[in-house]
Design a protein around this nucleic acid. Structure first.
Lengths: 209, 209
DNA sequence: CAAAATTTTGACCGGTTGGACAAACGTTAG
DNA sequence: CTAACGTTTGTCCAACCGGTCAAAATTTTG
């Protein structure tokens, strides 16, 4: 026996992965209700009944996807640690989050879609697991403030602002590219963003001197 | 003659307003494809065929809503002006944007939904009107930097970061409230956010001295 | 009031969607 | 070979959805 997970053959493992990959693509661009099983099946290269053999219901796919997502999505925050220089620690958190926006934009959009629509499927997780994690890290940050290592401010809103600014480059990618135009909207935009965010979070906008 | 707008009776004016208000509610929480005409009709207190008498197609409602939205949505940025102190000017831009997130969260979410899904209906506007406006304001900001009034950084990404941090409180409201909990997630959260953002954008996180 | 114009409704339609199901197909072990 | 098991597919269905239409109800106008 290996826990309560249903026993699965090799083919089931592979096909389920295939479906989840396809579903991530479809759900993240069309939202849950905006996506059809047919779309996902086609993207996964199989027929609809075949897909339904691996996931009985559309919701099951979404739920599985969401559960996996949350682990990787919160990993950077989990890594935020009390060892090392606070400013460096925060800087690398911001960098990691920005890299995730660059490398996993579909995951970011899937998450954004869910939250935008009121988080009907993950609200308990937000109020439980997520809140605990953030509270814990907020305490760490507060310690840094008390020690005079970083400026005193609201740790929760600080975390929000890091989430907002970094995920913006995944969720609002179309707008970012449109506004930057062809010349500046290329691959370099993430490096520009990284430079800007580093400066913003460290020094703000007041002129030096 | 009053332009090319179709002539409308008093009832048409009122009912169209009613429908748009209902549609804003429905579209902003379910997205375009996730919303049905029946839902909007019910929210507006009328039958589906009756609604379709005022707007021939579902898309027409969304289009009308989007056109109105964009004007008010970009108003704060349009007001960003070269007169007055740059830091004050930016501070009040941030404040205005945050107030909009507080007072018009549905509009923010409607917009976010559209962008998230690739902005299929407003991409031309983003590449045209929006880009022009942002470029124009970026030039203003660049002037401030050259004059030594604010720190040198990337004006475009600065604008993005203001959008991201303020709209976050509308688009991710469920998450913000869940993480802050019952005690801190009340009405005061916008004032906390305003204080935090002011400090972030002006001074960053480096400790004083 | 009565005619004309506008508004509202019930019934209906074709297409789509999530999902069920049994039959067919393939694979593997004895 | 063949029985057992896992996989795939074609067909079908009921619910839903966007939209039409003609007729009824209401309001406006002369």
């Amino acid at each position: 026996m290996e826990g309560s997970a249903p026993r699965r053959t090799r083919i089931q493992q592979e096909k389920r992965e295939l479906i989840l990959e396809a579903a991530l693509e479809v759900f993240s661009t069309n939202g849950f209700r905006g996506s059809t099983i047919d779309q996902i099946a086609e993207a996964a290269g199989m027929s609809k009944p075949n897909l339904l053999y691996y996931f009985r219901r559309k919701e099951d796919i979404h739920e599985t996807l969401m559960q996996r997502l949350l682990d990787t999505w919160l990993a950077p925050l989990r890594e935020l640690d009390d060892i090392g220089d606070p400013l460096t620690e925060l800087r690398s958190y911001i960098r990691r989050k920005l890299e995730m926006a660059r490398d996993f934009p579909r995951e970011s959009r899937l998450f954004a879609n869910e939250i935008l629509q009121g988080a009907p499927r993950i609200k308990p997780m937000l109020e439980g697991e997520l809140k605990s994690l953030v509270d814990e890290k907020a305490a760490v940050i507060k310690g840094w403030m008390r020690a005079g290592k970083i400026a005193r401010t609201d740790p929760w809103h600080l975390i929000f602002s890091i989430w907002a600014t970094t995920q913006h480059y995944a969720d609002f990618d179309v707008q970012v590219r449109a506004v930057l135009g062809e010349d500046r909207g290329g691959d370099g935009r993430f490096e520009d963003a990284a430079r800007f965010l580093e400066q913003l979070f460290l020094d703000g906008l007041k002129p030096k001197g």
